[in-house]
Amino acid sequence: MDELYQGLYDLLATEDLHQQVDDTLLEATFEKISEANLPERLATAVAEHLLARLKDIKATKTSKKAEEQLAWVNQLLASLQQPPMPGNIIQFEPQALRSLHPKGLKPELPTIGLAQPWLFTAGKDSPALLHELQAELNSCNHVDILVSFITVSGVRKLLDRLKAITATDGQGRSQASVRVLTTTYTGATDQKALNQLAELPNCEVRVSLDGRRTRLHAKAWLFERDTGFGSAYVGSANFSGAALMGGLEWTVKFTQHGQPDLVGRAI
């Protein structure tokens, strides 16, 4: 790595790192990595080396850069599998499975996939938070909505989607269940908005009435899917029209596939 400076680090120790530390003439603090965290730390280290190696691979006279990268990865995968498992070879052109659905009923997909994290800032280069929540609702099997307040303008933006996913069939089953937790803090929550949500089937609404003491200030949307590809949105946006329609809000998305520990803590 580059030159070490005085300050805090969180680096996996290697022989080269120990030598660099010795060269600084500074005192170092090392901490043993627990067995529980070791697999993740080792996997991260391997991933960093793999990424650097893939970026260094260049095209040849007979194949494109992507083809060379895929060939190298498939060779690496084959070397890790004993015995080799041909079914794990990545195909060219590389593709990602995004959904399984009845013929002719392709769902609306979130612009940001279900594996990578994202920070929504309401900037021009960021998808609209409202669109992403709509797409997430379309394909979830359960959603928890945790906000400080809810307004009619906010519910109006998503009510059709919520009605669609909670609608019951002849056996009383629906695509998704919904739980809502909000507060009366500052008196901003609209009673009409709560009534609209409470009237939905398979939707449970709870309100914290102790606004002065509890002061629930979290804002989160937690989406669960039977596929195991859940996602969570945590940030500053309440369930209001202004927040969902481009207010100056920051919201972080993390995913069950990419950041399972974070989703586990949230859910």
Rank of each mutant, 00 (worst) to 15 (best):
residue 146 L to S: 03
residue 36 A to E: 09
residue 6 Q to W: 10
residue 61 K to I: 11
residue 110 P to E: 04
residue 97 L to G: 07
residue 239 F to P: 00
residue 145 I to L: 10
residue 26 L to R: 13
residue 20 Q to I: 01
residue 218 A to I: 01
residue 54 L to Q: 11
residue 136 E to H: 06
residue 156 R to I: 03
residue 211 G to A: 09
residue 188 A to N: 09
residue 124 K to A: 15
residue 181 L to Y: 03
residue 30 F to R: 14
residue 185 Y to R: 11
residue 29 T to K: 11
residue 78 A to I: 04
residue 60 T to N: 06
residue 80 L to A: 06
residue 155 V to T: 04
residue 136 E to S: 07
residue 21 V to Y: 03
residue 235 G to W: 08
residue 175 Q to R: 14
residue 253 K to Y: 08
residue 27 E to H: 07
residue 168 T to R: 14
residue 213 R to M: 10
residue 197 L to M: 08
residue 184 T to H: 07
residue 96 A to K: 10
residue 148 S to H: 02
residue 5 Y to P: 03
residue 3 E to S: 14
residue 265 R to A: 13
residue 113 G to T: 03
residue 123 G to Y: 12
residue 109 L to F: 08
residue 42 L to V: 14
residue 70 L to I: 07
residue 50 L to G: 04
residue 204 E to D: 12
residue 153 S to L: 07
residue 251 T to F: 08
residue 91 Q to N: 07
residue 83 P to R: 09
residue 58 K to I: 11
residue 253 K to M: 11
residue 98 R to E: 15
residue 121 T to E: 12
residue 27 E to Y: 06
residue 10 D to C: 10
residue 266 A to N: 03
residue 248 L to Y: 11
residue 151 T to N: 02
residue 228 G to T: 04
residue 106 K to G: 10
residue 11 L to S: 08
residue 97 L to N: 09
residue 133 L to D: 00
residue 88 N to Q: 13
residue 30 F to N: 06
residue 14 T to L: 09
residue 141 N to A: 10
residue 219 K to N: 00
residue 78 A to F: 05
residue 115 A to C: 12
residue 41 R to T: 02
residue 200 L to S: 02
residue 58 K to L: 10
residue 112 I to A: 02
residue 195 N to G: 03
residue 267 I to K: 13
residue 167 A to F: 00
residue 158 L to H: 00
residue 70 L to S: 02
residue 144 D to L: 01
residue 63 S to R: 15
residue 148 S to M: 03
residue 120 F to L: 07
residue 208 S to M: 11
residue 223 F to W: 00
residue 91 Q to F: 00
residue 152 V to A: 08
residue 113 G to I: 00
residue 222 L to W: 01
residue 214 T to L: 11
residue 159 L to F: 06
residue 86 P to Y: 04
residue 87 G to A: 13
residue 202 N to Q: 12
residue 144 D to N: 04
